[in-house]
């Protein structure tokens, strides 16, 4: 159980973040320490019960995350699994991540976070989160605290089916790795580190499904692999799974099932980067693992109290 002071702090930060009030550096530090304590106890693959609502990439689009919570209900009312990529690209990465962490320390068994490829020092220093922290605080301390939390976020989740042992759902940010045959092998990874450039941990966070290939191929992203129908089918069979739920790839319709419904991509950042014009979705799994997709659109709200850039997207003009 979280202590009373933790509850109070987290509740206050939740309120402030929603109103876009800057969270003092020291509060961020405290929250990050608390989160690390909590996250380090979780295993690489978390076991989660149904019903659960699974969310894909958020990418710092705080207003859209608030919309998501409005539509699918705030925690603890709904139990959530976020598939990573909380930060970068959008202009409110910090608030987004802090909000999720607050819910995590406030309701540890009603919200679960797994790590995305953007939860990394290297990627956040290119794709916006580092710059955002620097802009908001004038120094990189807050970015550093958050990156230390990233290292403790677990890698995946297993959602048990009604029948217990078989037919469950494997949840991961990116996808499969040629170095991982059984989910149990993921438990052996020492995850408490920066995302490596290769190897199974990297692949799980970076790989993509590809409908036009049977097995494995080099990924155009420069990290992870492309995996095809056959490999996905084998992995599902080997691990007694009914579904792989992952995020990582923009889907204009918010979600996309491939490989005879054996794999789904869930994307939860509407109008990604304020440029793509896509809708977003979350996936709710009922007790008998029935899938319900909720699709939602973006809202642009003003967040005047926080010094930030106006969301103006780049084009070739």
């Amino acid at each position: 159980m979280p202590s009373l002071s933790t509850v109070l702090t987290a509740t206050r930060i939740i309120q402030d973040v929603k109103r876009c009030i800057v969270i003092p550096e020291n509060d961020v530090r405290q929250l990050c320490f608390l989160s690390q304590e909590l996250l380090m106890q979780e295993s690489n693959i978390q076991l989660i019960d149904t019903p659960i609502t699974i969310c894909g990439d958020i990418h710092g689009q705080l207003h859209d995350l608030l919309t998501l919570f409005r539509i699918a209900k705030d925690p603890p009312e709904t139990k959530y699994l976020f598939l990573g990529d909380f930060v970068d690209r959008g202009f409110y990465s910090l608030e987004t991540f802090l909000l999720l962490l607050c819910y995590k320390v406030r309701y540890p068994d009603r919200i679960f976070l797994i790590r995305g490829n953007h939860e990394s020092r290297q990627i956040t220093s290119v794709y916006g989160f580092y710059d955002e922290c620097l802009r908001k605080y004038g120094n990189a301390n807050v970015w550093r605290y958050c990156c230390d939390v990233f290292d403790y976020i677990s890698l995946g989740a297993y959602i048990m089916g009604a029948s217990g042992e078989s037919g469950g759902v494997f949840c991961i940010h990116g996808g499969l790795s040629p170095a991982v045959e059984k989910i149990d092998e993921i438990r052996l990874i020492d995850r408490k580190q920066e995302v490596p450039h290769d190897g199974s941990m990297c692949d799980l966070l970076w790989s993509d499904p590809e409908e036009n290939i049977p097995a494995w191929a080099i990924s155009p992203r420069g990290a992870g692999y492309l995996f095809g129908y056959d490999e996905t089918k084998k992995f599902l069979h080997r691990n007694n799974l009914s579904l792989i739920a992952r995020a990582h790839q923009l889907v204009m319709e918010g979600y996309k099932e491939v490989f005879d419904h054996g794999l789904v991509t869930v994307w939860s950042a509407p109008n990604y980067c304020y440029r793509c014009g896509n809708v977003a979705a979350v996936l709710t799994l009922s007790d008998d693992l029935e899938r319900t997709y909720t699709v939602f659109d973006s809202v642009l709200q003003d967040c005047n109290e926080i010094p930030s850039k106006k969301p103006v997207a780049d084009y070739f003009i």
């Binding site: 953007h118 992203r221 990290a223 889907v251």
Partner: peptide
């Protein structure tokens, strides 16, 4: 491809 890591290929395609 080696100069920078592209985080999102779908966005590039779009």
């Amino acid at each position: 491809s080696r100069l920078e890591l592209l985080d999102e290929t779908e966005e590039w395609k779009l």
